[in-house]
Write a protein that binds this DNA or RNA. Structure first.
Lengths: 120, 120
DNA sequence: TTCTAATGTCGCAAACATACGTCATTAATT
DNA sequence: AATTAATGACGTATGTTTGCGACATTAGAA
């Protein structure tokens, strides 16, 4: 369950890579949720009746450039999708990604439920 | 639901403070989970039959100092507790903290469930 | 009281994240 | 073809996180 030091290609692995796939996946997903702007974006996309085109930064206290970066991060984690439609881009939650997110955290939460009969 | 620019004490607020309490809380909890070492620590604490004293870094590919910092972070978010017992410290999951974590994410996950009948 | 072991704190360096202005690209409009 | 509007990419400044060795603190053992 817990990683030990390894060498690969004659080089020391990056510290992050010394953990399990499972641990890395959850950590990555958690990182995607670790900024209030990204939470706000997910909530906003969920709250609209259609996928959104147009400037999401109108709804956030951040510049368009910054929001664009947060969108990119959410997209790279598969939590949202952006479909090009002519000059505009329609942003939407990505069903599979959100499902993956829920499952990953669900699994973790089961794993880390403190047992009742633990002697401390 | 979405913050607008505000001034407080004549100073510009920190960007992070421009978001809702709710969004900030989830983001902070997510940040606590955003490193594989911290996931591994939570899993490890959950997996032991008693609370753990002794060097958790023995089980992780990181130095004692680094692990100590990760423990501090988890503790500051209330996810674990460390009870001093003489010279040793017994680390344990913190029931209330884990509960809070589950509720926060549970709430978010409900909120961001993509609706079936959305027109995209 | 001195020594030792368990643990935290400090300070640094390197890596990474955030925020944003400016520029590049491209689709539609004139 | 030239213009405009929507958007992403690039560069950069500033702040935050990570990782760790060296030092400090403290409880108990000798």
């Amino acid at each position: 369950m817990f990683a030990t030091l390894e060498i690969r290609n004659g080089e020391l692995m990056k510290k992050l890579e010394l953990f399990e796939e499972n641990q890395q996946e959850i950590a990555s997903l958690a990182k995607a949720l670790s900024h209030p702007a990204r939470i706000a974006i997910l909530q906003f996309l969920a709250s609209t009746p259609t996928c959104i085109s147009g400037d999401i930064s109108d709804y956030l206290p951040l510049s368009r450039t910054t929001v664009s970066q947060h969108l990119k991060e959410l997209k790279s984690m598969g939590l949202i999708q952006g479909d090009v439609e002519g000059l505009k881009i329609k942003y939407c939650l990505n069903k599979e990604g959100i499902e993956k997110l829920k499952n990953a955290f669900g699994g973790l939460f089961e794993e880390i439920t403190p047992s009742e009969n633990k002697t401390c």
